[in-house]
Design a protein around this nucleic acid. Structure first.
Lengths: 226, 226
DNA sequence: ACCGAAATTTAGTCATGGCTAAATTATATA
DNA sequence: TATATAATTTAGCCATGACTAAATTTCGGT
């Protein structure tokens, strides 16, 4: 049934995951972007893309971008599931701070067996999001995204609950954790300077100001007025 | 302080661990034995041993055996600690059956950071043995071995408690688990045929017969007569 | 429509860690 | 003690996945 011919190398899995994530952020998966994402040279990216194209896991339009085929996306989703389940596990079960789980999960994700994945998912009660609020794809490869807006888009007076924090940098994550700006936190927008100014919000009893690039990384659900 | 010059590859760590374990079982670490242990060709072993010798992690007497230097043993002990802590964690925290933990731990042991190791050790309350009863080296590299005898050495009437099961084969492990022959189990020797015959023991309320090679893998502490 | 800068691909190199086949060394046995 | 056999090492090969430098293509701006 399954079309598993040969197991993919960890490097191949990394590329597929990177392509998936870049495409998911609405950007084109260009050679340069992938090189920056993966921390390798552009030539290495071209090289690997050609191998993945031979395996029918990506479609490559030379000098333009690269796209996942359905088979490639399936594998990418498995790796993303591994990664985010591991993040949830490391955070919830072992108490690792949320700025550390990404790096640890990255090293573990390629050696996680299906069997162990099942045990972890069961242990956690099949969570739907990781500690950053990123959705964990189901075993069948279904991804449920909830947030529609970022903090940067809200008008003063809006009440919202944080559902996802897109920031990656550990220093940023520690800072946001410090402020209480984590998934599930409720907040009220106090003020927003229109063109790229800082956003002022109240979270718990505290007032905090966030510069606009960071506010763009914080995804929220807006509370309906009652 | 530490003499960490370059991080070792997973392959190198595997070789050092294999040498440590082979030497620990009182056997000489020959090229053939290591090749069989690691599932690679003899030529590959010679090749890697030469690299490890350059790094001063092993001493190689060509055409004779190989021995770990103190530096090599230190690294081997770290990997063994990783491996056994992971086995304990997978078994105790995630409920993996003991015949599966070895394989899973083997894949994880090379990507376990010191930080995550600390969290796991703390979570488990710093265990001193893994699910097979093998000692977990301390962070300082101290190994405490307790058992002195195997089931095969006991005389009829002897009472003992199992402290370690040396068998590796998953089928054997499932069989022993089935019989209740696991670490901490108490047993009484009923009969032993002197030259390689089966050993008959009572464990819980059951009588079981074990062939001699398997009995040699079961390490016990003999209860003092009272 | 062209031209130069930026992006991309090609070409060639390197390290790692496997492999087989052939040569060499050690050892057991006659 | 000589020699066959087993163990080990050497030599040479291959795949993977990095890299740099050079060639090529695309594209924005005039």
């Amino acid at each position: 049934m399954a079309n598993k011919i040969a197991p993919l190398s960890a490097a191949m899995e990394d590329y597929l995951k990177a392509i998936y994530l870049v495409r998911g952020s609405a950007a084109a998966a260009t050679t340069m972007v992938l090189a920056a994402t993966l921390g390798v040279s552009a030539a290495s990216v071209t090289n690997m893309i050609k191998k993945l194209a031979v395996l029918k896991l990506v479609r490559h339009a030379p000098y333009h971008g690269v796209e996942l085929t359905p088979a490639g996306e399936k594998i990418a989703l498995e790796i993303v599931r591994h990664h985010r389940l591991l993040e949830a596990f490391l955070h919830d079960a072992l108490g690792l701070p949320w700025d550390e789980v990404h790096g640890e999960a990255h090293k573990l994700e390629h050696v996680l067996s299906d069997n162990l994945e099942d045990h972890i998912a069961e242990y956690l009660g099949d969570p739907s999001v990781d500690p950053h609020g990123d959705p964990i794809p189901t075993k069948a490869g279904v991804v449920v995204t909830s947030a529609q807006h970022t903090l940067a888009e809200l008008a003063p007076g809006a009440r919202a609950v944080i559902v996802r924090v897109g920031a990656q940098d550990p220093a940023h994550l520690r800072y946001l954790r410090e402020l209480g700006l984590v998934p599930q936190a409720r907040l009220v927008v106090l003020a927003c300077a229109p063109f790229g100014g800082p956003v002022r919000v109240r979270v718990r009893t505290r007032q905090v100001a966030l510069d606009e690039p960071l506010a763009r990384q914080i995804w929220v659900n807006v509370a309906r007025k009652k």
